[in-house]
């Protein structure tokens, strides 16, 4: 009897573990980057590892996944890939999610050099497309720079005063 119980316990444990692992490996998100033409977006897949889905807090999962996607988008595609990238050192400070709006706080490095509308537009288009992929349930993206709301980047062109969506571009 004990042996049977033990076997059942082992089988159950094995099943849980395997299931968790499968969901972890299978789970990817799409991150976009802008090609050298500054407007064409290229989707690439980032695996959402490690060990997503093990803890099952849906709200935490969603918030963390969106944060993860934002960090990957700002970091850009792998080295050697030609892309319009955020300025060096730019990183995500925080992402708050309220309903279908993501509020992204980006480090001030994003404004480190006044550049043309070309780069600004390419960078934020990639970010907005990344965060509004269907599975996130996000349709608009608010932007803060180092914790502050801004009308544009200093010396910038793109309006950051209103939430951005895919139709902004």
């Amino acid at each position: 009897m004990l042996i049977v119980l033990f076997a059942v316990a082992v089988a159950a444990a094995w099943w849980f573990t395997t299931r968790a692992k499968q969901s972890a490996i299978g789970d990817t998100i799409t991150v976009y980057y802008a090609k050298a033409d500054g407007t064409t977006l290229v989707p690439w897949q980032v695996s959402l590892n490690p060990a997503r889905g093990e803890r099952g807090d849906a709200a935490l999962d969603r918030r963390s996944t969106i944060f993860y996607a934002a960090t990957q988008c700002v970091a850009g595609p792998p080295p050697g890939t030609q892309a319009v990238r955020f300025p060096a050192g730019t990183h995500v400070l925080a992402v708050d999610v309220q309903g279908s709006t993501a509020d992204v706080d980006i480090s001030k490095d994003v404004a480190s050099s006044a550049e043309g509308g070309f780069a600004e537009s390419a960078e934020f288009k990639a970010l907005v497309w990344t965060l509004t992929q269907p599975k996130f349930g996000i349709d608009s993206v608010k932007v803060k720079i180092a914790g502050a709301r801004v009308a544009t980047l200093p010396g910038g062109h793109l309006g950051l005063d209103e939430p951005l969506s895919r139709s902004s571009f």
Binding site: S121, T152, H157, L158, G159, F169
Partner: peptide
């Protein structure tokens, strides 16, 4: 020409 959320 491009559609873009430029402030001005």
């Amino acid at each position: 020409t491009r559609h873009e959320n430029f402030y001005v």
